[in-house]
């Protein structure tokens, strides 16, 4: 079997696809690529199925060698990607050969890069997903992040092409982020003043961030009650514990929880948040359900219907 042999595993490198669907009632976390937007592009660049597994590389310090020729793609954070020591373009495909050495060194813009391969990384599936949820110790090779000497299998190379995404589709992860959210859940348990403060003043990302959630720092908001009857938690739910500092819940959130929630951030907003690190400014904007649905549907349609131009460098709307 062709494989990618890990020399330096990085700070926290894990296999991700779109996550585990239909198993939350067993208490299983959804998981999935923290930046779904960049992850989907990594597969689109390769004509992969949308659910093909990619590597999610956090902040770099990653080095690996290929045992066979392969067609790779790189998207997401700029982690100073290189092939055999030569800098290589982000948001591009890269035909590579057996013995080539690839590296992600350090974060220049964003936190998480996605490394795709034609056909996807073929690690074992669990509940129809290859996603790793380290808190549960499930998925991937051993339920944890990659380790030295791990070998990631991939299928035989079928085609070789060079593609690069047009700059207008590439987000700048260092730009200020406004998260659009739907008022829902216990929104009404927050005073009108708190709601206004929450959506008009600035928050900053704290040091306490991971794939489960991003804890923010800023104006304290206090719901009428400290706890609620535990209920299912949707992606992007903004939970407010007793200290009044909001937490945006992401892919590795628990399935149910008992803290009040003031709203739900759009899925595309969650992707952008997952690329920001401590200190980055965040604004919240309440919007209608219809507006976030329309935003996501437009993205989905564009993604499903768009095709690569014959030059391979441009996407066109059919």
């Amino acid at each position: 079997m062709n494989n990618l042999r890990i020399i330096t595993p990085g700070w926290f490198t894990i296999i991700q696809d779109r996550g585990r669907k239909g198993a939350q009632r067993a208490g299983l976390t959804e998981g999935g690529a923290a930046d779904e937007h960049a992850y989907l592009w990594a597969n689109k660049l390769l004509d992969n199925p949308m659910n093909a597994a990619c590597l999610e590389v956090l902040m770099g310090n990653f080095e690996a060698v290929l045992s066979a020729d392969a067609l790779l793609s790189v998207t997401g954070a700029d982690l100073e990607f290189s092939i055999n020591g030569q800098p290589a373009e982000n948001w591009s495909t890269h035909p590579v050969q057996a013995g080539d050495r690839i590296e992600f060194r350090r974060p220049l813009n964003g936190l998480r890069a996605y490394l795709g391969v034609a056909g996807g990384w073929l690690t074992p599936e669990l509940f129809s997903s290859r996603s790793v949820v380290t808190r549960e110790g499930l998925g991937g090779l051993d339920g944890g992040p990659l380790r030295e000497h791990d070998e990631l299998p991939f299928g035989p190379q079928q085609a070789t092409f060079r593609r690069q995404l047009a700059p207008r589709y590439i987000p700048d992860y260092s730009s200020p982020l406004t998260l659009r959210l739907v008022p829902c859940y216990q929104h009404d348990l927050f005073s009108p003043q708190d709601r206004r403060r929450f959506s008009s003043e600035e928050y900053r990302i704290s040091q306490r961030i991971d794939r489960m959630g991003y804890r923010l720092e800023g104006p304290v908001i206090t719901p009428e009650v400290g706890g609620i009857i535990s209920e299912g938690i949707a992606l992007g739910a903004v939970q407010v514990p007793r200290d009044g500092q909001p937490i945006v819940l992401l892919r590795d959130r628990q399935t149910i929880g008992g803290y009040p929630k003031i709203g739900c951030v759009s899925s595309l907003g969650c992707s952008q948040l997952a690329q920001r690190g401590p200190g980055a400014p965040i604004q919240f904007e309440f919007v209608t359900l219809e507006s976030v649905q329309a935003e996501r549907l437009l993205f989905n349609r564009f993604f499903a219907a768009s095709q690569w131009h014959s030059s391979g460098e441009e996407l066109v709307w059919p």
Binding site: K21, G22, A23, Q24, R25, E30, I229, S230, E231, G232, I233, A234, T255, I256
Partner: peptide, 11 residues
């Protein structure tokens, strides 16, 4: 895609 029952709710 998924259903999450819990105490008094169904997501």
């Amino acid at each position: 895609i998924d259903l999450v029952p819990s105490y008094t709710t169904l997501l």
